[in-house]
Amino acid sequence: MTAGLALLAFLLIAVAVSGTLLVVAKLLRVVSTKHEPLKEQTYECGEVPSGLAWVRFHARYYVVALFFVLFDIETAFLLPWATIVKEAGATGLVAVGSFVVVLMLGWVWASRKGALQWQ
């Protein structure tokens, strides 16, 4: 718990320091007096942007997200075991090993299916 408090202090300072820079910038920066409509237009190489940038994106990113969930869950399961590998000994190793083998079988299947090909 003690370390938690220290961490909290650390985080607060981190936010404060970066926030301070913005506050200082707010004090020091110049303010435009003329209102130029072009100024606030979205930059797109000097052209008028066609439509908003908030568009639907390709489903490929969904596949990556799925993979991430799978593997991150795996590592989440591995973490508690990682600190007690020695204590868990061979039994733990077998248990975790079989888990990893099943997961990697899935990886092999996915890569053979071409799911890891980005394009």
Partner: peptide, 18 residues
């Protein structure tokens, strides 16, 4: 999504637009 690539762009070797 339609992306105007140029005419001012670091990699269009001058003023070219795609």
């Amino acid at each position: 999504m339609l992306l105007h690539f140029g005419p001012q762009h670091p990699s269009t070797h001058g003023v070219f637009r795609m």
